[in-house]
Structure formats: structure tokens, C-alpha cells
Design a protein around this nucleic acid. Structure first.
Lengths: 363, 363
DNA sequence: CTGAAAGCGCTTACAG
DNA sequence: CTGAAAGCGCTTACAG
């Protein structure tokens, strides 16, 4: 009898190879891949080990053909969020492939663009939208989402509403933690650069800063707060303003890394060393934080995980809708990390003296 | 006997529906769809009519599963290339979906990591590797590729060899164009910050700078060249060095944006305005170029298109290998753009005077 | 918690 | 020129 020639061209391992290697059925491997809970831990581990050792990657075509469950979600981003974008993509793509759904990535430069793109995606069968800042904070985008009834999930936003979920860190707690850290270093006059007023996070970070001051019995001083807009340039101006204050701060905490980097630049122009003369801390832990010198002590947001979580939320919502139910927009909080690098130190001895006076005379 | 429930969720027509409607077998429909010639004209017309009337569209997942034409390529990246990453992803994913191939994205932090990851991917059926700088410039990675015989394509690299293709701009021409631009502004003493010596682009950019100087009849002066390593910090030192030179340059051209941004910082510390006292130009057009103030005049690399081109090259090579032939690694050149922003201007009037003297006394 | 069977929609390899 | 069979690699639906 003639042997039929195999049709396989790739020599990639399949689910059956994994099953054989792990001593289970393909079905069990499938369950592990899809993260189903009804698999014994021991079985799961054996499967995972086999997957790892064989270097198995599920065949997407086979998965989507078999599941007949093709979900497509869109990822919308605009220019200013370029710092987040790569991480959002990495996390989003990873989770999308895990759910075996398709992620369509679209850029929209202007606000009008966003509207057009969103409309086109929805017409093209996209059932959910992932949005990143600053797009997610634009009123027009929010209206659009509200009106469209398309489920959406915003990354790095605390603003959840009816059909829109949000994933973020707790901006208030993060700013609180950073301020407390600066205080613990011995600083008593701590400047703050406020973020752009039309992003919700700005107010939360400001509140965290103020409350940490209060908790330590330090005065909340208007003169130590300067308005910025999350841009480097605005940070330049804010820092000028804060460092021109009589009895200037020994530390400045900026609401993002761009403005913190600008603060370092201004400090240097004035001949101040960072951190020995001035402590400067940022927020976000973008690439800039480790580009500038000294590298910035800042708050790290787990963007990759946030993107993953947003995809999860969205997929859950889309599936629920297919079953006829509509979930409320949910807000998921992830943990931040305070990353200490080279831009913070105790205050200089000279102001250390002033500090005690300030501490006593505080209102 | 209980009827098994159907698994079909979409109600789209299939190849069998078309076959039934046209009174032929699914096989014949398949031939028509694929434009094979061995079908009678009459049969073909009947099939085409059925396709038309049913509104049939082939299922892509089924096609790629059945055709066993599944190509998987891997995208390897390491931390320092974060600036490129989002664009590489956007371009790479787009082209991958166009070719109906799968793109697996993997991060590898250390050089050893790269080796492990690459090995795992290859074992996992990945038939081609896309690599980004600085991974593509690491000798160890290059050895690995040479040894493995896996086709690869490097983005933003001019270094093509046997099984590895490369896509890049012409670094020499770009540096030449930028230098010429600075000269055309009236500058005669132009400093240059050299890039890290183990990236090939560094030497090419340096050569472009020098040749543009020569073309204009300007001296190539060692004192105006400072060594950097593509990091902000190294740019700080290089700029200090260049600005300490007696009869200091009126313009500094840095081999990347990080070092250009550092040069701006040093200029500001010394009380020099950019661009009225000092012109500063960069290379790459990363996010940093538009973050700092003034925004940098720089060379833009079309990373998205480079990623697309790299995917094309790779897919072509993989297909060729399946047919038994091996293509030589090719090098594809894409156009760069000189983006003029706010960091360049004619030299200050004072040095304008010196310039003429310098021009005359040049060796 | 696990597996055997059937099937997703198409194409390859073979036989007429 | 055409078709019956087998198979791509996975998941659903069912049965234990």
C-alpha cells in the first residue's frame, strides 16, 4: 500500500506533540492553553513543561477556524501617547493572541480622525475598542463612545462609565507614596508641578501630594505648586517658577517624567546639582526617565499588564454581549512601583537647618 | 438518535454551499477561486455565478490552515530599542497580516537571552527572524544567525550577509545632507558627536559629516569631533568637550537625538541659547526630538516602512527556501527625511566674523 | 477533572 | 477536466 505523502510543511510541534510529550490528551492541552480552570495543577504543570520544552506555539489559523468565535477589537492611539505605545502593543498583542482574537491597530492623529477611524472600525465588524491616553481623556472621544454603545476599555485612565471600562494604577496613592518618600529623605519644602488640568490623573496626583504633606504636618503652600501641561516645555516654565521662590524648595516632584526632566535641566542651568542641591522626582517611568542624567526616581506604571487587563475586560464584555447581557463599565486597579534611581537625596545641610524652623512654624 | 448541535456560528456561505448551488464539487470551486486554468469555461462561469449570488467569501483561517502555507516569523527586540519598537511593531504587524503570516513578538533582555529565545523560536517552527537594533549589531547575535542558517532581516542596519538581509536608510548620505544643511545656514565650525563605535552606522555618519565638510572646502578638525556612545550621558560629556574648545563651534551635529538633547542641556547650562548661540542637530527623530525644547532638527528614519520592507524580504526568502533555493542576504535602502524644527539657525553675527578668518586660515 | 469523536472550511495528493 | 478522500491543527459538544 502506498503511503500518502504528508501535507505538513512546517516541522512545528502541534497540540498532539505536546499531548504525547506530557502524557495527556490533546483536549487537556487545549484546556491549559486556554487557561480553563478545570485542570489539575499537576496536569497543568506537566503540559506547561512540555509546551516550554518543545517551544510550542498554537496555530492561530487552526484556532480561529475551530472556534468559529472570531472577535476583533481595535486599538486606537494618537501621537502623544508614543511613550506608552510600544508597551501597550506588546501587552495588548500578547493577550489578544492568548484569547485568539484579532487586534487591529489604528492611529488617529486628530480628534476628528478618531471619530472617523472608530466609525470605520465598528462598521468593519470591530466589536470593542481599546483606547490609550491622551485619546481616552478627550471629551469628544468619550461622547463618541457613550453615543455608540460600543464597549471600550481605556488604559491608564481611572474614568469608567457605562460601556467603557478603565485600567489604571491609583494615581492618588502613587503621588502620596512618592511625596512620603521625599519627606522621609528629610525634605520639608517640596515643590510640585501639576499636570494638565483636563486629564483626570492630574487632580488625583495633586491630591496625593497635598495629603502626604498634611499627614506629615507640613504646610500646603500655594507658592510651591506650579501648573504644567505634561510637556517638557511647560516643565521648564514651572521649574523656573518654583526655583525663583524665596526660600526655594529642596525637592520638586513633577506629575510626569517629561516635566521632571525639564526641572533637572533648569536646575542645571542655575548651577544646582541634582540630587545634592535639589531632589527631582517624576511619574510614569517612560524612556525619558532613564535617558536623562541623573536617571529619574519615578513612579512605574505596569503598562504591559494594564494593556493585558484591558483586553481581558473588553473580551469579557464582548462575549457577554454575544450572550445578550451588558456589563457595566468596570475600573481595575493595578499596583504601581516607586523606582528609586539617582535623582533623589536628602536635602543639603544648609536647608536642613531651615527645615527645622519651617517645621516648627508650619501653619 | 440525538442530533449533535452544529458548531457553526457564522451563517456565511461556504465552499460547499457554492458547490451545491453550481452543481459541482467543492474541489472545482476551490480551483476557480484559486484561478487555476484547468477548469472548463462553462463550469467556471457556473461557479462564478453561484459565488456571486451567494455572496461567498473564502474563510482565511481555513485557507491558511489547509494550505499548510503558514509562515511564522519572529520579531526579536531588546530593551534599548524601545524608541523604535512601537513603529517596528506597527509596520511589522501590518505587513504580516497582509501576507497572512503570523508574527511572534519576543523580548530578550540580555545577549544570552537572545540566543535562548532565538533557539526556542526556531525549534517552535519560526522560519525567519526580524531583528532590531541594537540586537542586530551585537556580534554574538550575528554569529548566531550565521551559524543557524535561519533567514533573518535586520531593521535599521546596513549590514547584510549570507542569510541576513538588512533594511536601512543611507546613514552616510543622511549625515552628509544634514552637515550640508548646517553649512548652508552659514556655519563654518561644526562640531560632531560620534556614535558608539560598535554600531556600523556610527562610522558611516562620521564619514558623511567629514565629506560634507570637505565638499564645502572646510577643514576636518579633530578638535571638533567628540566620541559618544549614543547615550544621553555620553552626549553630556561630548558636548562639554566640544564647547570647551577654543574658538568653539557654532553648531553641533550629534549622531543621535539622545546626544543632541544632551548637547542642548549643556549649552543651556553654559548660558548659550539654542539655536541663536548654538545650532544643535540630531539623528533618528525619536520621541525625544520633539520632547525637548527647542525641538530638534534631525534626520527622520521611516521605521514603519523599514519594518514592512523587512517583513517582505523575509517572507520572500522563506518562500524561496521552501522551493529549495536560498537567496543571498539583500540590502534595501529607503529614503530619509531631514526634519527642520527649532534647534538650527544661522551662526551669531560675532562668530560670523570669525568664520571668514577661519575659512582663510584653514589648513 | 479528562478524553474520544466530530467538525470548523478549505486544499493537497491522488485517481480517474 | 473533475471529484472522493484525507488532512491541516485546533475546539466544541458530549460522555464519563
Amino acid at each position: 500500500m502506498k503511503q500518502r505523502q504528508s501535507r505538513r510543511q512546517r516541522n512545528a510541534p502541534t497540540i498532539s506533540d505536546v499531548a504525547r510529550s506530557a502524557g495527556v490528551s490533546p483536549m487537556t492541552v487545549s484546556r491549559v492553553i486556554n487557561g480553563e480552570s478545570n485542570v489539575r495543577a499537576k496536569t497543568r504543570d506537566a503540559v506547561l513543561a512540555a509546551i516550554e520544552s518543545l517551544g510550542y506555539t498554537p496555530n492561530r489559523a487552526a484556532r480561529s477556524l475551530a472556534s468559529a468565535d472570531q472577535i476583533i477589537i481595535g486599538l486606537l492611539y494618537s501621537n502623544p501617547s508614543a511613550a506608552y505605545l510600544s508597551e501597550v502593543l506588546v501587552g495588548g498583542l500578547e493577550q489578544a493572541s492568548r484569547h485568539n482574537i484579532q487586534l487591529v491597530v489604528e492611529k488617529c492623529d486628530t480628534e476628528e480622525d478618531a471619530e472617523t477611524v472608530a466609525a470605520r472600525l465598528m462598521a468593519g465588524g470591530v466589536e470593542g475598542l481599546l483606547i490609550t491616553p491622551p485619546l481616552s481623556d478627550q471629551p469628544r472621544m468619550q461622547e463618541l463612545l457613550r453615543a455608540s454603545d460600543t464597549p471600550a476599555a481605556a488604559i491608564a485612565s481611572e474614568n469608567a462609565y457605562n460601556n467603557t471600562s478603565a485600567v489604571s494604577i491609583d494615581d492618588y496613592q502613587a503621588a502620596f507614596a512618592m511625596t512620603r518618600h521625599i519627606i522621609s529623605l528629610g525634605h520639608r519644602r517640596i515643590g510640585f508641578v501639576i499636570g494638565d488640568t483636563n486629564q483626570i490623573a492630574s487632580g488625583r496626583r495633586l491630591a496625593g501630594y497635598r495629603d502626604a504633606l498634611r499627614e506629615a504636618g507640613l504646610p500646603v503652600d500655594d507658592a510651591l505648586e506650579a501648573q504644567g501641561h505634561f510637556t517638557y516645555r511647560s516643565g521648564l516654565q514651572a521649574a523656573e517658577q518654583l526655583l525663583a521662590v524665596e526660600d526655594r524648595p529642596t525637592a520638586i516632584f513633577a506629575s510626569n517624567d517629561d516635566m521632571a526632566a525639564a526641572t533637572v535641566a533648569i536646575a542645571h542651568r542655575r548651577g544646582l546639582d541634582v540630587p545634592s542641591d535639589l531632589t527631582v522626582c517624576g511619574f510614569d517611568d517612560t524612556a525619558l526617565a532613564t535617558t536623562v542624567w541623573p536617571e529619574l526616581t519615578t513612579i512605574h506604571q505596569p503598562i504591559i499588564e494594564m494593556a493585558r487587563a484591558a483586553v481581558d475586560l473588553l473580551v469579557e464584555e464582548v462575549r457577554a454581549r454575544r450572550d445578550g447581557e451588558v456589563l457595566e463599565g468596570r475600573h481595575q486597579l493595578l499596583d504601581f512601583t516607586l523606582v528609586q534611581r539617582q535623582s533623589d537625596a536628602p536635602p543639603p545641610a544648609e536647608s536642613d537647618g531651615k527645615r527645622r524652623v519651617g517645621g516648627t512654624t508650619s501653619v
